[in-house]
Nucleic acid binder design. Structure first.
Lengths: 200, 200
DNA sequence: GCTGAGCGTGTACACTGTAAACCTAAGCCG
DNA sequence: CGGCTTAGGTTTACAGTGTACACGCTCAGC
């Protein structure tokens, strides 16, 4: 038999293909990229990727999972920075926005795109759960610091929905042209925090 | 020459095709529907739709524009109901949510799907502008009623981003399972309104 | 009644994702 | 060392896609 593929061989190929796919998907959209192009980008024949991924959908899922993983890491990196709950929460929000604006295509791939059967790709749901956990942790920080009152998970979701909504509208070009997106985020965040502050 | 197509003929055909496409797109997604199926649904040959639409993309744009038009009408219908600014704003929000939840596929087609060159379809941008105007008008109502302080356009966008974000996360199944979407909307709306209320 | 144009259709093509047969070269056994 | 076996990669093939193009049918105007 031929040289068997070691696990690191497989992982290496998958990684290279995911990286290539990420760039191509970002530029032309998943439907604008063909398996033949992906294969050519790695210098292999069109059918070779099928040995490493079930089908094109699995490649898309892998690309999205990889995006979520980088995203989660970016959020988690902010945990260390400061011990003040509010600062940390704000830093997390900034990291969130920065990621979305620096990787708009990845962000859209991750959130906009509704892949029908995401549940079939465990690493995708896991990476996505990691990101969510980060957000909830930081909402918890807000509550602990006495800056907000209520269920931390609910608070996290309020802030998340708000951030996400503003971002996708911005990325889709749907915001009114006379609205500055970053001012929108700032004012929305401020209003929500004012609204959640304990009466004390 | 044969019986020339009157404008109403053309409009009629376009309407029927849009209606058929709306159902099929909702069920299978735009990519899951072929021109041949669309044509078959109207009982014509596969190439006939090309006399009424430039290409498949134009059909998608028309379906989306039609969605936006219905959406705008649904929002505008709430203008008449009550003279109280807050009630009216709340009713508009309810109408927004109702539309999104009763037509989830249309809503996703309208907002999620980022069609690359929407600017090429004027009726699409116009219908979408109508919907936005409705929202701003109702934010103005909130300000007039003394329930909120600030630029009505900004306030409209804050509420919109929040609503939209929550809805797309819900429709995409990304909300944590222990979060009730309608409770999320209620609490978010309440928090924002508290945060925007004038100091009195 | 003829003509010519506009409408719908049929045919054709380049391209897609991917199944299946095929080739190649390397590890094991004798 | 030689042959068998088999995993990894390629080639071929196919059904199905969007749509360009050219063909006929059918009627309005002369």
């Amino acid at each position: 038999m031929p040289r068997l593929l070691t696990d690191t061989d497989v992982a290496g190929f998958r990684e290279r293909l995911i990286a290539a796919a990420e760039h191509l998907f970002a530029e032309h959209g998943p439907d604008g990229v063909t398996m033949r192009q992906l294969a050519a980008a790695l210098g292999v024949s069109p059918m070779t990727p099928y040995r490493y991924f079930k089908d094109k959908d699995a490649i898309l899922a892998a690309v999205r999972a990889s995006g979520f993983a980088r995203f989660a890491s970016a959020l988690e990196a902010e945990t260390a920075d400061s011990s003040d709950g509010v600062d940390r929460s704000r830093a997390t929000g900034r990291a969130y926005v920065r990621f979305a604006l620096e990787n708009p295509d990845a962000y859209r791939l991750m959130f906009d795109l509704t892949q029908p059967n995401e549940a079939d790709y465990p690493e995708l749901v896991e990476a996505s759960a990691r990101a969510r956990a980060s957000m909830i942790r930081h909402a918890q920080g807000l509550v602990n610091a006495g800056e907000a009152e209520g269920d931390p998970r609910m608070i996290a979701h309020i802030l998340w929905a708000n951030l996400h909504g503003g971002l996708v509208l911005q990325l889709a070009g749907k915001l009114s042209p006379d609205i500055d997106p970053s001012a929108l985020r700032r004012e929305a965040f401020a209003a929500i925090l004012r609204g959640l502050k304990p009466k004390g």
